[in-house]
Write a protein that binds this DNA or RNA. Sequence first.
DNA 1: CTGAAAGCGCTTACAG
DNA 2: CTGAAAGCGCTTACAG
Lengths: 329, 329
Amino acid sequence: MPTVIDVAREAGVSLATVSRVLNGSAPVSPVLREKVSAAVRALEFRPNLMAQGLRRGHSNTVALLVGDIAQRHFAELTMHVQAALEEIGASLMLFNLGHSAARLLDFLERAPSMKLRGVAIALSDTVPAAVEPLVAEIRRGDIAVVAIGQNLTRYGIPSIVHEERAAAQRSTAYLLGKGHRRIAYVGRIKGSAVGSERFRGYRAALRAAGVFDDALVFDLAFRYAAGRDAIVRARENGIAFTAVQGGSDEIAMGALAALRDLGLRVPDDVAVVGFGDVDMGAYLRPALTTLSSHPEEAARHLRDLVVSDANGAAGLILLPRTLVERSSS
Amino acid sequence: MPTVIDVAREAGVSLATVSRVLNGSAPVSPVLREKVSAAVRALEFRPNLMAQGLRRGHSNTVALLVGDIAQRHFAELTMHVQAALEEIGASLMLFNLGHSAARLLDFLERAPSMKLRGVAIALSDTVPAAVEPLVAEIRRGDIAVVAIGQNLTRYGIPSIVHEERAAAQRSTAYLLGKGHRRIAYVGRIKGSAVGSERFRGYRAALRAAGVFDDALVFDLAFRYAAGRDAIVRARENGIAFTAVQGGSDEIAMGALAALRDLGLRVPDDVAVVGFGDVDMGAYLRPALTTLSSHPEEAARHLRDLVVSDANGAAGLILLPRTLVERSSS
DNA sequence: CTGAAAGCGCTTACAG
DNA sequence: CTGAAAGCGCTTACAG
């Protein structure tokens, strides 16, 4: 692998000039610039990223911490984040937390030594206050820290979030508008900050209509199993309902399967609404009514925050969700 | 951030001793070892990964190139690869190719300058021969290159693959055993090496039974849409069949939706079999019959190859698939 | 077993 | 506009 020394020799200039041409960090005469460019091409030179990183104090890598990449919306987010970072020449380091707060803290502790360009925290789980000093330490190294999907501005972290409470409220109101009064909520998952946020919207809508009933709220396992188990258990306990608001599309899909197994028709006997508009939903039969998500937009905002070195602001960027009506409701 | 110099000063030893204790690279007397450890703890020292990488000649990051992270099985693979790499203290850099060969070549060209520890290529798309010299160049830098999901041993790349042809053949034989004679294949996707490999197994089974019919082979779009479009088009063209072998679970899911839309019952009118056993399949109704995948095992093998610095061997590791029978067939 | 010194490949004051 | 030199923070021969 050729180094800047080789390029300098080939071009007949100093190391400094090579570096200046490469980075455009200082004016260089057209003659030397062309010589350097020719040498770079001839040698197929590419700067050693480790050396560059050491010297500059940071790499061009952004770490994305996701709550659980097995969940569809995190996979979609990951895809868009990778693409958005690529636009600014940054690489994506992926770290899957698997819903573990311990793993989050562990990573944040190690982050300063990694010399990252940024850290994006994408979690639905409740984030412990212990992250605050760790984030402060990371920022001391001039690393951008951004939250996606959950509002962490209370820890001074700029956050890009979808509306959750208002969206769930709107969705529940939609079901109320269709005449439903017994609407179950599946997905106030224990430890999920986002899940309980959505729950609050659901509850607000039902309270406003005077039909909130705690017996219709289920917080069980997670993903498909949660949806299925909630339906099965409700049946066992003789709890009646005519609609289900899922805490996620995957939970709603699990509910659809359980309803089918119990011989209930959707939407005739029970209407089902998901959350997140995961691509699969449109291909289910009945297709899943849901609330949209905008991972691509979130990724774009993340990219911009990394570029502008967001630290300091700790602003909140809010992405709206819209109801996507399909045949399950 | 404290450096080794700070640790050395704190411990009253030389830099070399600090490094030796940190890396266990040479014997150090118990007394000094303890002094260094104490200093490391006191200062909460963590080695600068950029400096370490520059000096050692490589980082501890492994790049995973996936064909399309939007496809479920790539997301699952990514999850397991991240976990497996973590066991050896390595980080995962994720690069999504989006089925673009140009992007693959581009990444491989840049790879040597990244000073990675390894590159894992997980693609279903046909890989052009142009990768061969690029891979050779990468290896010159002592970076392990491994293929997952597609046999690239012809380019000298050790490969971890699932059986494809034999599995598809077995699956098709299973449908034949159920009495089906008109079995459609959806998923010989243009440019998909893995897809056409599966197709060959399907064809072999049907030819052995003397019932292969090219009119029943569909290679259209990809993912859900492929399955849906194939069914719709077959219907429009009056092509009859009683079973569908999908080139992937997602394609099969699209087919299920289309069949439902056309008023056909599964499995009574048409049986459907997928490929890959993506988690969603078990929650569909009817649940999807499919062929298993073993991403966790693949990730484990990858980890081992990275550790043993696989280059040179170029062996083939074959993972078996088994038929997972559910209600769609 | 231990330390002083060189060097990995860059970038950036500093001096001209 | 240009170059010689220092230095980012490690690791590893080399000498003792």
